[in-house]
Computed example of a mutant assay.
Amino acid sequence: MKIGLDIMGGDYAPKANVLGAIAAHQSLKADEHLVLIGDTQQIKPLLIEQGFDPELFEYVHTDEVIGMGEHPTKAIVQKPNSSIAVGFQMLKEGKLDSFASAGNSGAMLVGAVFSVKTIPGILRPCLTSIVPKLKGGLGLMLDVGANADCKPEFLQQFGILGSLYAEHVMQIENPKVALMNIGEEDEKGNMLSLAAFPLMKESNQFNFVGNVEGRDLFNDKADVIVCDGFTGNVMLKLAESFYVITIKKGLKDEFFDRFNYENYGGSPVLGVNAPVLIGHGISSPLAIKNMIFQSRDMITSNLVGKIQAAFQ
């Protein structure tokens, strides 16, 4: 197994990424190898500084970096030797089993679709986010930003993708899938949710439990919550703010501690032909470590193969 990691992506690169790789290495099996992609002249001195043997990692040297504010499509084309572009080329050629980066999220989405391509039958790939539950355990929300505007068919497919991820990666048996709405009644919602509801209700590919409201995000009514990317991103950013507020107020609470993004790693891009993860731009070493573990779990569960089979 070869897990690709972009060392140059993120606000605290390369140091945070190198430290995260070192931390993850301690828990990886002998056949689970990290491939660090980036400027080796910056990477190896950091490893030596930490007293870590550089020979324990594999490296691919790159001398270009796609900045956080660059135009995604232009940057991928104009910087073919960037860590993101090279990572996706290796993923496409089968030299990596997964690729993760805390860099430019738009470039990661564009790179995933242009390199390993969307799985046949899937209309739009989507981004997911882990959601802590009040009584313990975790749920999943998707889409959280890849598709601000959606068609009803997109949401129905997000239900399939989310259910498969929850079952095979999160180990949730027969996950409950719900549609985010402004009311629980079948006839509630805007044009999108009204059209998506019957599609999801009639699907035999997941356990649909109906509509849920925003107040249900953290309870046990659903394991997987489906929404368009605009709604999902707003809800995600609001949830992230809860943890920041508790820190600023000096409050210590186990539930709100679980809102810390560092605990979960990155956001999987579901619907493409290989495991791809996008980390938070401010990813710390802990977040990078958990993103590596998340990459490993997507590989070992053969999630992409199961999604491909579901859409044949």
Rank of each mutant, 00 (worst) to 15 (best):
G136K: 07
I299E: 07
L199F: 03
P275H: 04
Q294P: 05
K29Y: 10
L47G: 09
C150I: 03
K133P: 04
E173K: 14
L155I: 00
Q78H: 10
K29C: 09
P72M: 03
K135H: 13
L19R: 02
I37Y: 09
L134V: 14
Q78L: 10
N263R: 15
K201C: 06
K44S: 09
F242I: 12
I307H: 02
P275S: 06
M108V: 11
V234M: 12
V244D: 15
D149I: 05
D63E: 14
N104V: 12
A75E: 06
P285T: 14
A309Y: 07
L19Y: 14
T62F: 12
T231Y: 00
C227L: 01
G159R: 01
N81K: 11
R258V: 06
P198I: 00
F52D: 14
L96A: 03
L277A: 09
M298F: 06
E58A: 09
Q312P: 11
A21N: 12
M108A: 01
D186I: 13
I299N: 09
S129L: 10
G232D: 02
S27F: 15
K135M: 12
G4A: 03
A166K: 03
L217K: 03
A13R: 08
E153P: 05
Y59V: 06
A107S: 11
E240S: 05
K44C: 04
L28N: 04
D6A: 06
E64V: 05
